[in-house]
Design a binder for these strands. Structure first.
Length: 882
RNA sequence: GGGCGAUUAGCUCAGUUGGUAGAGCGUUCCGUUCACAUCGGAGAGGUCACUGGUUCGAGUCCAGUAUCGCCCACCA
């Protein structure tokens, strides 16, 4: 016998272990078409946050759904080595012991990162298990493991030989805290209150005149190599081509005319620092200006600046420059201004545009077929609106800077000869060979120190995890994958790059569908992130309410294209739903509603049983359709409402008289049907609330059916194969409406809940009389009635209600307030009168009649008739009150 | 500055092809009926942000306005 309440904590861990140990999640069944999802690999440093919980719940739902539909499901798990994040974690740990990365050297450091990974990395995979994720853990991969590293090298070498990877010296986003380049995507612009300084630059040949330039970054003036004005700016026309004397540095720099200069901004003249500003870099190229790099890797001023400034930290230098300019009388004014400052998203300090040699991917070339794939529908986004975002970014894509000055990551397979010639090969031996061929002798080669952007290896994830570059059977079977489930925040970082790499290297898109789910935000609508410290811990919620409840909540809230704000109350509600289901099962168990092997729903004969089969067919169809369309919230809502609102509230209640009654064929059928229906509910719920569904199946079904195996491997309900029963549905709808009306009337009349009263039903036709007889006991029980009769006289002081063609009379002689009852009926008449007037307005409208579709017009006519009939009966009822 | 999205019940949110608004929670009233008080029954509560348009008919389509949010660009 089941306990009174369901103990999720006790059950969930046990079931998960049993699933995993029995190989329940493993791919490879040969009798089904493959269905593949690759997990967005969480960072090895990561722990499960609410966004992961949502992301993986949705993937798990799809996998479990398709598994039950007979597909050979591979949910490919794994983790990302998360270059910067992981290096930071280990560096921080070392710092606690007073050790600096550079003190111990690269090899030792990398060894310690691996040690860290072995000890404390990958906690998230345990947490995903706690959530119920049905990944094939045998196949877990790590972006730094041997196979994937080999794939990375292979791709790098190939793209290099194809000219799609190249080395270039240009401005990059430099994170001076982490001392590495980062990509455009890793830069986060923050609005800050800053100041705008107006400096006077004297003309070289006429120091009495000066040009005023405005800047938010005074320290960079030491690297200025020009002043630009707009070619059509009259104010400055006469000084174009002349020189100004750059103060503090005492250098002559030219005034150039360039469209970049905006006469509306600042003074209209702008200082040009080609080595430290992306726009100025372009201006510098156009005018062939020198580029003076004034910063070192820590963003301190270097030896290119005059002596007093050398070695100063960049913000110290700013103060000094401003003070010195002011002392020289060259500071015209200072304004405060709010402006954006680019920060590194990991390091958290302002980045510097810095001139360095880096490796780049020619993203524009790779993007073309990737754009095409979405345009021609080989890949579609759900919801579709994200395709715009994708196109927008892809069509304006910039070269992707992939080198990072870190130690943790895939070291770039490039070796330099003595004269700087670069040899890109998969290993040193091949590089040597290439060098030999080039130089005609053995030379000393030095390997590039840099590692690759983490996202470079993630871009290969859909095929590298399947064994590429080897032609493995798994690669042949499971690529391309089916659906990629992700948040929109990594469409650029990851999705776009997987598409580019997949098409280029596999000659096939990596997936046909990208499902973009909402982002879970905090109460302020901010994106949750570790750096902001506003993360929620879903594991606490799992501890309190169970994984099923957390999963179901996220699913119910996963409407397309919306942000999710999670509320704990909601989770509590769905925890209660689990309890409700549990108790319904307990009721079934107590009433002998045990599964009957081979029982077919077509065998149902009573209206009640035929009705629940009919309803089940409808909900199974709804849930299936919703999941096929990725409308997860609809799937959750439909199962919830059916289970609670239809099965528990009505089917079980209406079945009680039968189940409490004499043994016989009707009872036996109802017991079997009830068990069957509950079993179907468990099937429908399995993807959403897998633990409680599996537990109930194991406790109540498996032993009796004597079938081995898990619920999660059973066949998904086939809605189309279930018999429908519209007549039974009409009958039960009426009975339910009748009970509802009586209950409402009782409440309104303040009839004590325990009081059993009589009911007279007038005007019922033979069919309805039949229905009343058939469900007599249930109606009396649920509406708390003593006796139900038909076609009786209306006693004085009776409450009356009209339900379609029948008038229901509740004799309440001593309870009822005659005037109140008159008012009540009058109010109903008023409302109906209003409805009728509205309908007649429509039906009296010639263009409505001629233009609205026939069925809409007909519907209106029927509604009018019904309302009019009800009005007539209400009037009679009113008349009877005297 | 460019783009996207949101605005529906006290709160959090659904509402797929246009046909007189729904859920959960909260709230009010009633309830110790033998599955469940993590429950049962009943109710109150919305001029669907605003303005205009298309249409027989608009929460739903179009345009504009307001407010909020996000993404991209912008260190004069």
């Amino acid at each position: 016998m089941l306990d009174k309440t369901y103990d999720a904590q006790a059950v969930e861990a046990r079931i998960y272990d049993a699933w995993e140990q029995s190989g329940a999640f493993e791919c490879g069944r040969s009798d089904g078409r493959p269905y593949t999802i690759v997990i967005p690999p969480p960072n090895v440093t990561g722990s499960l946050h609410i966004g992961h919980a949502l992301n993986n719940t949705l993937q798990d739902i799809l996998c479990r759904f398709e598994r039950m539909r007979g597909r050979d499901v591979l949910w490919q798990p794994g983790m990302d080595h998360a270059g910067i994040a992981t290096q930071m974690v280990v560096e921080r740990q070392l710092a606690e012991q007073g050790i600096k990365r550079r003190d111990i050297g690269r090899d030792d450091f990398v060894r310690r990162v691996w040690e860290w990974k072995a000890q404390s990395g990958g906690r998230i995979t345990t947490q995903l298990r706690r959530l119920g994720a049905s990944c094939d853990w045998r196949r877990e991969r790590f972006t730094m493991d041997d196979g994937l590293s080999r794939a990375v090298l292979k791709v790098f070498v190939r793209l290099h030989k194809e000219g799609l990877i190249y080395r270039d010296k240009r401005l990059v986003n430099w994170d001076p805290k982490l001392r590495t380049a980062i990509s455009d995507l890793e830069v986060e612009n923050r609005e800050v209150d800053g100041q705008l300084w107006y400096f006077r630059y004297p003309l070289a040949d006429d120091p009495s005149r000066h040009v005023v330039v405005a800047t938010t970054r005074p320290e960079t003036m030491l690297g200025d190599t020009a002043v630009a004005v707009h070619p059509e700016d009259e104010r400055y026309r006469d000084i174009v081509g002349r020189d100004v004397l750059l103060p503090l540095a005492d250098r002559r720099i030219p005034v150039v005319a360039d469209e970049h200069s905006d006469p509306e901004k600042g003074s209209g003249a702008v200082k040009i620092t080609p080595a430290h500003d992306f726009n100025d870099f372009e201006v510098g190229r156009r005018h062939d200006l020198p580029m003076i790099n004034i910063l070192d890797a820590d963003a301190n001023l270097n030896d290119a600046v005059p002596e007093p400034y050398r070695g100063l930290e960049r913000y110290e230098a700013r103060k000094r420059v401003v003070a010195d300019m002011e002392a020289l009388g060259l500071l015209e004014k200072v304004e405060t201004q709010r402006h954006a400052v680019p920060y590194g998203d990991r390091g958290g300090v302002p980045i510097e545009p810095w001139l360095t040699d880096q490796w780049y991917v020619d993203a524009a070339t790779l993007a073309r077929p990737a754009i095409d794939a979405v345009e021609r529908g080989a890949i579609s986004f759900v919801p579709r609106t994200w395709e715009k975002t994708y196109f927008e970014w892809m069509r304006n894509i910039e070269p992707w800077c992939i080198s990072r000055q870190l130690w943790w990551g895939h070291q770039i397979p490039a070796w330099y000869g003595p004269d700087g010639t670069v040899f890109v090969e998969e290993d040193e031996a091949q590089a040597q060979e290439a060098a030999q061929a080039h130089y005609g002798r053995d030379v000393e080669l030095v390997r590039d120190e840099d590692v690759l952007d983490t996202w470079f290896s993630s871009a290969l994830w859909p095929f590298s995890t399947l064994g590429w570059p080897d032609r493995t059977p798994e690669l042949a079977r499971y690529y391309k994958t089916d659906v990629l489930v992700t948040g929109f925040d990594i469409i650029f970082f990851w999705v776009a790059r997987m598409v580019m790499m997949g098409i280029h290297l596999m000659e096939e898109v990596p997936f046909h569908t990208v499902y973009v789910h909402a982002l879970v935000r905090d109460e302020k609508g901010q994106k949750m992130s570790k750096s902001k410290g506003n993360v929620m811990d879903p594991l606490d919620l799992v501890e309190s309410y169970g994984a099923d409840a957390v999963r179901f909540t996220l699913t119910a809230m996963a409407a397309q294209g919306r942000d999710i704000k999670l509320s704990e109350q909601r989770i509590e509600g769905y925890r209660n739903f689990g309890t409700k289901l549990w108790n319904a099962a307990r009721f079934a168990e107590m009433n002998g509603c045990l599964p009957v092997a081979g029982w077919q729903p077509a065998a149902a004969t009573t209206t009640l049983n035929r009705w629940i089969v009919d309803r089940l067919a409808a909900v199974a169809a709804d849930v299936t359709e919703a999941l096929e369309a990725y409308r997860f919230n609809d799937a959750a809502l439909a199962t919830y409402q059916f289970t609670w609102g239809t099965f528990c509230d009505w089917y079980l209640e209406l079945a009680k008289p039968v189940l409490n009654g004499e043994d016989g064929p009707e009872k036996a059928e109802t017991q079997a049907c009830c068990a069957w229906a509950l079993g179907q509910i468990l099937h429908l719920l399995q993807p959403l609330m897998p633990f409680v569904a599996e537990e109930l199946w194991a406790r109540l079904y498996r032993p009796i059916l004597q079938e081995e195996g898990w619920l999660m491997h059973r066949a998904w309900p086939d809605a189309a194969a279930l018999p429908r029963a519209p007549q039974a549905a009409a009958e039960l709808d009426w009975v339910i409406a009748l009970i509802g009306e009586v209950r409402a009337l009782r409440a309104e009349m303040n009839v004590p809940a325990a009081a059993r009263i009589d009911m007279i039903v007038n005007g019922a036709d033979a069919q309805r009389q039949d229905w009343l007889t058939r469900h007599d006991e249930a109606i009396r029980r649920l509406a708390r009635l003593e006796q139900v009769t038909t076609d009786g006289p209306v006693p004085s002081g009776a409450a009356q209600l009209v339900l379609g063609e029948v008038t229901v009379v509740l004799p309440l002689a001593n309870v009822i307030d005659l005037e109140q009852e008159k008012r009540r009926l009058g109010k109903q008449l008023d409302k109906l009168g209003g409805d009728i007037a509205k309908i007649e307005g429509k039906l009296g409208n010639a263009s409505f009649l001629s233009r609205a579709p026939e069925h809409v017009v007909e519907e209106q006519r029927e509604q009018r008739e019904q309302a009019q009939a009800t009005v007539a009966r209400l009037r009679q009822a009113l008349a009877r009150l005297g």
